[in-house]
Structure formats: C-alpha cells, structure tokens
Write a protein that binds this DNA or RNA. Structure first.
Lengths: 355, 355
DNA sequence: TTGAAAGCGCTACCAG
DNA sequence: CTGGTAGCGCTTTCAA
C-alpha cells in the first residue's frame, strides 16, 4: 500500500514507514530536472524557459507523478479557484438543478464550486454567506432568499457577485441574470385569456422580508390588459413543508380562489403544490382547473397531466451567470445584466370547464 | 468602499489606495493583543494560554474582524476541510438530490463539498476523479458510474472513500452505503404478484462496463419465488437523452415486453421514462400498465398517476455516508458498510387490465 | 505560560 | 534564460 502523506511530516514515524511515500513537490521535480524551483514552476506553467529546459522539467514531473498543490498555489497567488454558490432553497427543484448545473459549468471552466443551501431560512442564508466568505472564494453566485437584505452590499463590495433570478437592490456592483418576467407574464396571460379564462389565481412565492412588489405589479398590469380578474395567493413562508403547502392551497381553492378556472404559479414547485391541492379537492387538471408554471422542469411533462409552463432555458441561465462571474473575476469591474427570454410550453391546458 | 485585498501585496499600488484595506492576519491580532503569533494562534483555537491572555487575544481578533485564512491553515495542517463528491450523472434526479443533500450535510459538519458530475460518461468520471484528487480533499464520496473500474483501487488507497448505492469491488478499503436490494425486490415482487400480475418487465439501468449481475440475479430469484415471468430490459447507455430513452422503451413495449402488465424500474428516472413511453403507446397507467419505481423522489406522487415506489429514506443515506466518511477521515481505518432498508410506497397500482 | 523560528509548497520579484 | 529568495498566513515544535 502506497499512500501519500498530507500534513506535517512529524505525524507518526512517516519517514520510517516504507508504506508511506511523501507526495512529490515542486522541489523534487526541480532537483530531478536539475533546475531551480523557480525554473520548474515557470516551466510547468509554460510561462517561460528554453524549450529544452521546459521539456526536461515536464518529463521529470511526469516521471514523479507530480501535480501542483492547489492549496500552496492558492496561498501564493491569493486566488483559490473556488466559487461560492449560495442557494435559497434546494428543496425547490429548479434551484436544485441550478446548483448542480452551476457546479458542472464551473468545473468545466477550471474552477470549482462550493454549494451552500440556506434551505429556506433567511438567517441561515446570512450565516452561510459568512462561511462562504471565510473560504476566500474568487467569486460568488447567489440565488437569494432575501434579495433585499442589507448584507449583500458588503459582500458585493468585497467579492465579484452574480445574482441569478433577481437583482440585488442593495448591491449595485453585483451582476445579475434576470428573467424577462414582463414577457413571460404577457405570454401566460395571453394564453389564458385566449382559452377563455376570466378569473385566475396567481400564486406568488413567499418572501422572507421584501414582498415581491414588481412581480405583483406585472401580474396586475397584464391581467388588466387581457381583461382577466386575478386573485393573488401568497402561501406563508412557513409552508415550505410539502403537505402544509398543499393543504394551504387546497383551502384557498375553496376560499379566496373559489371559482377560478386557472392557476398561474410563479414557480414550478408551487405549481406542483397546486396540483396536489387540486387532487385533494378532487379537481381535474386541466379539466376543472388549468395550471400554469413559471419554469420548465424536466418532469413538467409528466406531472399533471397538462402542466403548461414557461421555459427559461436553464442552459442560458447557467452560461450567462458563469460567464458574467468569470469576466468579473478576471478584472472587469462594471456589473453586467443578462436577461433570459421566455418561451411558453403548452401542454394540454384547456379553456374553463371544458374537456 | 472598503475592500480587503487578496494575493500579493505588490498587486497594484495597494498600500497607497486608501480604499483598500489589507485583511487582518494573525500577525495583526498578535500585535494588537501584545502577544506572539504562536500565542494568538493557540488562544484563538482555545488550545492553550492563560485565561486572561486568551481573552485579550479574542477581543483583539473581534475588534479587527479577524478570521483565520482557511488556505493558510490548510497548507500548515495538511487538511483542507474539503470533501470531493463525484456523481455518475446528476441528470438522474435521485443523484441530483443526493449531491445537494450531501453538500448540505457536509457543510453542517464544518466541511465543504466540491461536487463533480461525470454526466453519464465513464471517461469523464475518470478525469474528474483526477481533478478531485488534485484538490487534496480530506475524503471522497462517490456514486459511481462504473463501480467495477480499476481506478477506484488507487483512489481508495490514498483517500478515505465512501461509496453510495454500490460496493466498489476493486476497492476493499472503501466504505459503502448500500441498499437492501434483496428486501426491496422482495417487497416489489410480492406486491405485484398479490395484485395478480403474471408477466412483468424489469428495466435495469445501463452500465458502462460491468453489467449488473447481482441485480439481475435478485430479480430472477424473486420473480421465480412468486411465480411471475420476467422480461429484462436494458436500455443502452447511449439513451441518456430523454426522448431517445422514451422511444427505446416504447419500442420495447411493442416488442419484447408486449403483453406485460407491469413494469418494475430500478430507478425512478427509468420509471419516468416508462411513463413517457406508455403515453406514447397510449397505455393508461396504472390501468393498462402498473409501473413501479425503485426510489422515491418527491415528485413521485405527482407523476403517473399512481407510480408505486420503494422509498429508501434519503436522509438515512446521507447521514450514513457522511458519518462513515468523517469517522474514516478522523482516523478509523476499517471500512464500514451501512445498509438502507426499503419501504414500499403504494400509490394506486392495480392488478392487470382492471381499473 | 509564552515565544522564536522552522516549516507547509508554491509564486514572483529581481539580479545575474 | 535562469536562480536565489522572500514572502503568502498559519501551525507546531522546542526552548525559555
């Protein structure tokens, strides 16, 4: 068994344990190649050196199975290659997907992500932000629970930050990837109005502090434009629990939202909850109730049936976010905004009380 | 704007830019507290020192807003606090969930995860493993694409490794969290047989190299036990694409699997594909076809309808995996095995050609 | 109980 | 084109 040691040499009788081989260092490579550490360092990074020397160093490194210690490199250069990803809640399938996709994209670009999940709790969001900062990331990608919070300002002043799905009003220096909600809602309301729906419920995600005024405003404007009556539903943040949320919505369906023929949800996870609520109430979807989601998860074609959604092209979001962040890390200072365009995916929604 | 610098002091005219404040170091704290760096270091970690001294150092640190640089600490101690998580494919919703849950659990335990996703490609699995190793993680958590691959041996010899969902036959020193497939399949076949199904198709996940003999064997044994005839379906690895997989299975439904009344899928993602295939063929689920999944995703209650599943308690998996890994990192050398027990979740599956 | 000093492995300056 | 060397910020030994 050949095992490289890490850490202090004094840990156990390492030097005398033939099973333990010290991991080769740049020093070792330099000696093996008959050059100085400096030369070896430059050579391996292709920064300078005569071709012959570079080749010799490369061979030596290869032979020893050397590769640079990223920790030591990070300490020397001050850049860790790490990007912090902070999610509001990976219970939300869209964010879950976002988190893994961002990880993958970052790794493909030679960096690595450290994902933190606030799990719906704003105070945890704050704490995790602190933890991520301590890791000295090169930048931060956030899908905030509470975009209006004060702490984003400090963070954005110290690290390149790109925010996904929102703007950070308190942190003008942060980049952002936002959805063209205006266009998306236009499509949804046009669709519903065309089908003949006159009264629709709109389910807004709960916000820990700042209620989502802009979204609310857009909803009202578009509803008015196409002449449909809206009933705003705001399930409390507490109902992150699946059944609690379902029951809350089921109650709404017999209360404030009684008689609506369509429900427009501002996230797919909310749409799922509405589908569950409809099942509880014995309402057929899309027969009795048309349900529209505002994302487009892979499973959207299976649930329901007939969940119509807005697709925002996740790939575009990931590319834009990672792209922005990396240029920002590489020195660009002016914050950028990318906007993602919507595309309506109709899956068998119908007009009111038809089949 | 007050921005801490990272990296070499010589980068730009840092010293003369009043907007830039150098992040406080242990040295600074030591000076402020009137002690040596060594004393400060010990004091902050509560390792030694007179109470008064410790308190003084604490105050100084607090006042300066100091917190230790994890990079420097990692270099000095040889332990990075990082755990590599390598997933076979986060396209699979179960693994996607696993990845984020592991990240969360690790962070809660004071470490952080770097997740890599092989995305269904065994050669990428190998490459990513290499990348993760270079990060000098304290340990590795893997959900392998190809458990039989050679490279697991080397890795397991050099790092604490815990494998979830499988054993690594080539790496006896690795820990494992496995599912009690025997019990799970017993439940599934009992269930189907009780409902009166006589002929069921079983969809096995494609393996890049080693075909999953043990699973196949279990299937045959349990099928024989309850007297049902099985038709094994192995969609090719190439059909990772959603529609390709669906079409492949739809073809099977009119080919080898014609006339089956139930389909048992060894993962929920496969079950989803079967549901799509059934839709293509115009088969009602669970009326014409009962579908059983071998995981229990959160959305399982919505798809279908009536997807019966085996629940493996994700929390248990995560706890076991992280627990094993951390004790292994902390010095325990003997590999552990945890086994997760199954629980059948029946959602409206029916007997053959009934309603 | 405290401190001086030697690393950890690499990068980058500056001189040769 | 190359090499000495001074850090990066922390931990840990060993002596006081």
């Amino acid at each position: 068994m050949k095992r490289f040691t890490q850490g202090h040499v004094n840990s156990s009788s390492a030097a005398y344990d033939e099973a333990v081989v010290k991991r080769p260092t740049l020093q070792d490579v330099a000696v093996a190649a008959g050059v100085s550490p400096a030369t070896a360092s430059y050579a391996l990074r292709g920064q300078r050196g005569a071709d012959a020397t570079v080749e010799r160093v490369r061979q030596a490194a290869e032979r020893l199975g050397y590769d640079a210690d990223p920790i030591a490199r990070a300490l020397a250069t001050g850049s860790t290659g790490t990007v912090g990803v902070l999610c509001g809640s990976t219970r939300d399938l869209w964010q879950q997907r976002l988190a893994v996709d961002l990880s993958r994209a970052l790794m493909a670009r030679g960096r690595h992500a450290v994902v933190a999940d606030a799990d719906g709790d704003p105070s945890r969001e704050r704490a995790l932000l602190e933890k991520l900062r301590e890791q000295r990331p090169d930048g931060l990608l956030v899908a905030p629970l509470d975009p209006g919070a004060e702490h984003w300002y400090d963070v954005a002043e110290r690290f390149p930050v790109v925010c996904v799905g929102e703007r950070l009003p308190r942190a003008p220096s942060a980049g952002a990837v936002v959805f063209d909600n205006d266009a998306g809602m236009a499509q949804v309301f046009d669709h519903l109005a065309t089908l003949g729906h006159r009264r629709v419920a709109v389910v807004l995600p709960a916000r820990p502090s700042t209620p989502d005024r802009p979204a609310e405003h857009l909803v009202r404007r578009h509803a008015a434009r196409v002449g449909v009556e809206v009933e705003l539903l705001r399930p409390p943040p507490a109902s992150a629990d699946v059944t609690a949320l379902r029951d809350h919505l089921a109650a709404s369906l017999t209360g404030p939202a009684v008689g609506v023929t369509a429900v427009f949800c501002l996230s797919d996870s909310l749409a799922f909850a509405v589908l569950r609520a409809a099942a509880v109430r014995g309402l057929a979807v899309p027969g009795d109730l048309s349900v529209v989601g505002f994302e487009d998860l892979d499973v959207a074609d299976l649930v329901g049936p007939g969940l119509t959604t807005i697709s925002w092209g996740t790939d575009g979001v990931v590319d834009a976010a990672v792209g922005q962040l990396l240029t920002s890390i590489e020195g660009e200072t002016t914050p950028v905004r990318s906007t993602i365009a919507p595309r309506l995916v109709v899956r068998g929604s119908t007009g009111p009380r038809s089949g």
